Simulated assay, not measured.
Amino acid sequence: MSHTKHHVARPRPGPDWVVQDVRPYDRWREGTDECAACGVDIDLNGDHYGMELLRSLPAGEKRGFERERFVFCSERCVEVWSHE
């Protein structure tokens, strides 16, 4: 049986990044962004999923962590991207 690898538009950052939150949005802000999984353009003022990842910064940094936000067009794309 052959396994087809899905195209991922925005690869997951390294293993030091931890998923903090994933939630559906029906509006977030004006503008568009690309789905991290499939690459389709998403209206951020419409239905989509947002994911926030955190990474601890080295000791001595003023901020204790760094944030990164990913957006997805569907719950399925969240699942596909999360398992890459």
Rank of each mutant, 00 (worst) to 15 (best):
E68R: 14
P15L: 01
R76S: 12
H6E: 07
F72N: 05
S82M: 08
E66R: 15
Y49H: 14
W81M: 07
V71K: 06
S74G: 00
H6D: 08
L54N: 03
R10H: 12
H48Q: 09
C73A: 03
C73Q: 06
D33K: 08
V8Y: 02
Q20C: 15
G39A: 02
V78Q: 08
P13A: 11
G39I: 00
P11T: 07
C77E: 00
S74E: 04
R10V: 06
D16W: 10
Q20P: 04
T4P: 09
T4G: 13
S74H: 10
D26F: 15
E68S: 12
L53R: 03
V18H: 01
A59V: 04
Q20H: 14
R76M: 08
P58I: 09
V80M: 08
V40S: 13
H83I: 13
D41L: 10
V40R: 14
T32Y: 03
R63K: 10
K62S: 00
E84W: 09
E75T: 15
S74A: 13
C38R: 10
V80P: 07
P24T: 15
V80E: 01
C35R: 08
E30V: 11
D43Q: 14
R12Q: 04
Y49M: 07
P24C: 14
R67C: 09
K62C: 01
A36N: 03
H48F: 06
Y49T: 13
V22H: 03
W81Q: 07
G50Y: 05
W17M: 02
R23Q: 09
L54E: 04
H48M: 13
R27Y: 06
C38Q: 09
C35W: 02
T32I: 00
P24A: 15
P15M: 01
T32E: 04
H7L: 11
C38G: 15
V18F: 08
E34M: 04
L57W: 10
H83P: 04
V22A: 04
D47R: 14
A9H: 13
D16C: 13
G46H: 12
D21G: 07
P15T: 05
I42K: 09
E75F: 15
W81K: 11
L53T: 02
C77L: 08
R63A: 05
H3Q: 02
H3L: 13
W17H: 06
R69Y: 00
S82R: 11
S74T: 12
C35N: 03
H48P: 12
M51V: 01
L44D: 01
E79D: 14
F72T: 12
D41R: 10
R27V: 14
V78P: 06
H48N: 11
R69N: 00
A59P: 03
T4R: 14
V40W: 06
S2M: 07
E84S: 14
E61A: 00
D26I: 08
K5F: 14
G50Q: 12
G46D: 09
D26P: 11
T4A: 09
N45V: 11
H83F: 04
H48E: 05
M51F: 06
R23S: 07
S82G: 10
C35P: 05
R55P: 02
C77S: 06
R76F: 12
E79S: 05
V71G: 05
E68M: 15
D16I: 09
P58Q: 10
R69P: 00
S74Y: 12
E79R: 13
E30W: 02
